Amino acid sequence: MATKPKLYYFNGRGRMETIRWLLATAGVEFEEAEYLETRKQYEKLLQDGSLLFQQVPMVEIDGMKMVQTRAILNYIAGKHNLYGKDLKERALIDMYVEGTMDLNEMIMLYPFSSPEEKEKNFALMIQRATNRYFPVYEKVLKAHGQDFLVGNQLSRADVQVLESILMIEEYEPTALSEFPLLQMHGHQIQKILCLFPNLPLTHCVLG
């Protein structure tokens, strides 16, 4: 029996959340091996040589102690057929995913804004989502004419775009009001992902 991947991160979503989503979408059961809540826990991982660049997230998987979020996600997607059928599809997936990760960085950093910067950072986050990122995915869906962003099957691009959408909607529920295709795509991908066990999805679309 294969060993479940073990996840090492703080007790929160952060950069580990996308990894959780992708593992669950791939049908891979995983363990939250340890929530890093003290400096001592972090230093132990450093002393063990587990953190190649002295950073988390870290995932023990297939005999490796993997760090660097993008490297982990690339490995999971490639192993579980979520990374396109050829180099061209992989390049498209990479482009769309990098956009979502740029947006996710803004979303993750927003709660740590100073009181003075909170309002400005909120406005910038929503502005970037609705003027820079969401229009791209709306245009892609219109031009592609398929249920998925790339090719004709589920890929990590669909999963990561949905994650970004849901995070933005936590702050601004009407963020997709001008993007009907993206809104429909999000609902369709949610229906698919709700079939997978262990997915960190707080609600599912039915019907």
Rank of each mutant, 00 (worst) to 15 (best):
E43N: 09
L45P: 08
L45I: 08
L46P: 10
Q47D: 14
D48F: 13
D48K: 11
S50A: 14
S50R: 15
F53P: 13
P57W: 07
P57A: 12
P57M: 13
M58F: 11
V59L: 07
E60N: 13
E60Y: 15
E60K: 13
D62F: 02
D62K: 00
G63F: 08
K65R: 15
K65S: 14
R70M: 14
R70G: 15
R70F: 14
R70V: 14
A71G: 14
A71H: 12
Y75D: 02
Y75N: 00
A77T: 01
G78T: 02
H80I: 01
N81S: 01
N81P: 01
N81E: 00
K88P: 08
E89F: 07
E89A: 05
E89C: 02
E89T: 02
R90P: 03
R90L: 04
R90H: 07
L92E: 05
L92H: 04
I93C: 03
D94C: 05
D94Y: 03
M95Y: 15
M95Q: 13
G99W: 13
G99Q: 10
T100I: 11
M101L: 13
M101R: 12
D102S: 08
D102I: 09
D102M: 12
N104P: 12
N104Y: 11
L109C: 07
P111W: 05
F112M: 02
S114Q: 01
P115M: 01
E117S: 04
K120H: 03
K120S: 06
N121K: 04
N121T: 10
F122S: 09
F122V: 05
F122I: 10
A123W: 09
A123R: 08
A123D: 07
L124Q: 09
L124E: 07
R128G: 13
R128A: 14
A129C: 11
A129P: 13
A129T: 10
T130E: 14
T130H: 10
N131F: 15
N131V: 14
R132C: 08
F134R: 06
F134E: 04
P135G: 02
Y137D: 04
E138S: 08
E138V: 10
E138L: 06
E138K: 08
G145A: 03
D147V: 06
F148W: 06
F148V: 06
L149H: 03
L149M: 03
L154I: 05
R156K: 09
R156D: 04
R156Q: 07
D158K: 05
V159W: 03
Q160D: 11
Q160N: 12
V161I: 11
L162C: 09
L162W: 05
